[in-house]
Design a protein around this nucleic acid. Structure first.
Lengths: 206, 206
DNA sequence: TCGTTTACAATGCGATCGCATCGTAATAGC
DNA sequence: GCTATTACGATGCGATCGCATTGTAAACGA
C-alpha cells in the first residue's frame, strides 16, 4: 500500500516557498503577500504552492515557525562558535543581535512577524501560536539576569522581571525603528549595549 | 457663487467615521477594515463614506492624524488638570499612560497605529506621515530627561538619547503586549514606574 | 505492464475589494 | 420658481483574492 512515486523533498520545497514569502514581505510589504505573488516569487505555479500548503494560513504558520527555528539556530551558532564567552551578558547580546533586523533578510523576517501579529489579533489559532514562544523568551531573559545577579555583575536591587520586559521591549520596538528607518542598526545596537552595560555594570560581554 | 445647501458639519461627520473605523479595528481586527464595513459600523451607506473621504487612504490618514490629536489633547488635559506636578518625571508618566492602550478605546487606537505602520512599510506617502511625529516625541523625551539632569534628579551619566529610545521602546512594545494579552495594564504600568524610578532616582512623580 | 499515487499546471468560481457612476432629495442664492 | 450645489443612496465594474477542480506527466509497487 505504500506507493512512493516522484520522490521530492517536501521539507525543502516548503522551505523554498517560505523563503519566497519572506522575500516578498521584505520588498513589497505585507500587502503583496498573496498565493499568486508568492508562487511567482518562488518561480513556481500557484497550483504547486497549493500542493504543499493546503491553505494560506498553513503557509503563514509554517513560515513563522520556520522563522523561530532559524532564530534559535542562529543564536546557538553564535554561542557555540567559541567567539563569545558564555556569560549571561554575552548570551543576551547574542539573542538581541540575532533577532533584530540588521540586514535585508532580517527585515523580511521581522515583517513576517508583524504580519503574523496582525492575524493573531483577530484569529485565535494564530494568537495561540504567537503567544506560545513569548513567555519562554521572557523567562530566559529573567533567568540570565538572575544568573548575572548571582555572579555579582547585576545589582541585587534590579528586578529581573521588569528588566526582562525592558529588554524585550528594546528588541521589539527597536526592530520596528530599523524597519521604518527611524534609527540605523548601529544606533540601535549602541542603545542595546548602553542598556546592557548599565544592567551588568562593566562586566565583560566579549 | 458661494452656494451652501444642506449645511452639514463636515468635521463631525468625518470624526464619526473615524471613530467607527477605530471601533471596527478594535473588535474585528485590522482585516475587517473595508469601506463597506466601516460604513455599516458607522450606520451609514457606503456612498456617504465615500462622500466624506474620496479614497480609503484619505480616510485612514484622517483617522490616524485624529488619533495623534486625541493623544495630544489627552496629555495636555492630564497636565493642566493640576493633579500632577510639572516635573519631567510626571510629564513622562502622563505621556506613557496616555499612549498605552489601557482600555478598550485605547486598544482600537493602538491597532489603528499598527495598521498604519503596515501601510507605511510599502507606501511612501504613509511612511512620511508616520515618520513625521516620531522624532518630535523622541526629542521631547530627551528634553525632559535633560531637565531631570539639570534638576539633579537624573544621574549625569545617563545618556538622554539612549534613555529616550528605551522609553519609546517601553511604550511601543508594552502596548503590543497589552493588546496581545501577554501582560496586563497593571504589569505594564509597574514596569514603566520601575524604569522611571530607576532613571529619576527617588524623585517624586506625583 | 498496469494501476495507483504523487508532482505540478491551468483554469474557473464565488466573494470581496476600492472606486466610479448615476439617481434623488434637500437647501441655498437668484 | 428656477437653478446650482450639496448630501446621500444604490448599483455596477474591473481587479484580485483564496480555494476547488480538473488534467497531465512521471515514477513506483504489484
Amino acid at each position: 500500500m505504500v506507493k512512493v512515486p516522484k520522490q521530492v523533498d517536501h521539507a525543502a520545497r516548503r522551505a523554498e516557498i517560505a523563503e519566497a514569502l519572506t522575500r516578498l514581505t521584505a520588498t513589497r510589504g505585507l500587502e503583496g503577500v498573496s498565493l499568486r505573488h508568492v508562487a511567482a516569487e518562488a518561480g513556481m505555479s500557484m497550483g504547486l504552492v497549493q500542493h504543499y500548503f493546503k491553505t494560506k494560513d498553513e503557509m503563514l504558520l509554517f513560515a513563522v515557525e520556520r522563522r523561530s527555528q532559524v532564530y534559535e539556530e542562529g543564536i546557538k551558532a553564535r554561542l557555540e562558535s567559541g567567539e563569545l564567552p558564555s556569560t549571561p551578558k554575552a548570551i543576551l547580546r547574542a539573542i538581541m543581535t540575532e533577532i533584530l533586523p540588521l540586514d535585508e533578510s532580517g527585515r523580511g523576517n521581522w515583517l513576517m512577524g508583524v504580519a503574523f501579529f496582525i492575524r493573531a489579533v483577530s484569529d485565535p489559532s494564530f494568537a495561540a501560536a504567537y503567544t506560545e514562544g513569548v513567555p519562554q523568551l521572557f523567562e530566559l531573559f529573567a533567568l540570565l539576569i538572575r544568573q548575572g545577579q548571582e555572579a555579582g555583575d547585576v545589582d541585587k536591587s534590579a528586578d529581573p522581571m521588569h528588566e526582562s520586559a525592558i529588554l524585550w521591549a528594546l528588541a521589539d520596538s527597536q526592530g520596528t525603528n530599523i524597519v521604518m528607518k527611524h534609527r540605523t542598526p548601529d544606533e540601535v545596537l549602541s542603545t542595546v549595549d548602553y542598556y546592557l552595560d548599565r544592567l551588568f555594570g562593566s562586566a565583560p560581554a566579549g
